[in-house]
Amino acid sequence: MTREDVIDFLYAEARMLDEGRFSDWLDLWTPEGHYWMPLDWGQTDPIHQTSLLYEDQFMLRLRVERLNGARTFSQKPKSRCHHVLSRPFIDAYDPGGVTRTVTPMHYVETRLDEQFLLAITARHDLVVQDGALKIAGKRVDIVNCDAAFGNIQLLP
């Protein structure tokens, strides 16, 4: 694994989400990986306070299967999303342990006539399992996390 592999991985992940390949995206995770989207700026506790998301693999799988469900009325028609990434910072590079990255990005989600933009910072903990990079944890901070939002139906 090289530093370039790490950066390619992060771009490939965003591309999967933009192309709606959510089942492939689930395969990027370790079994214990959690996706965290804090509600409060600088939040440190995902357990005893409300977050926007703090999901294990069961919940992420549920989310993906729901998006494809026949009676998922809020996805008729389906939402689409679009990520624009800045070059990721590799804050810690450890091919034998945890590699930590910080990726500023703009996230756009749309459905029907509505479209919104979120400015976010994604923090990944990446590990190598069975010769492939995997997401052991992902934290997504929205710059206006304390604002009132309508539906955010897909995953930044």
Partner: peptide, 26 residues
């Protein structure tokens, strides 16, 4: 107990919650 309540809140009442999406659509 508050951990369970926080989980309930994000699963059911958040702008990112699937149950919330179901209701708001209606």
């Amino acid at each position: 107990l508050v951990a369970r309540t926080a989980m309930y809140n994000r699963l059911i009442n958040a702008p990112t919650s699937m149950v919330g999406h179901d209701d708001l659509e209606m």
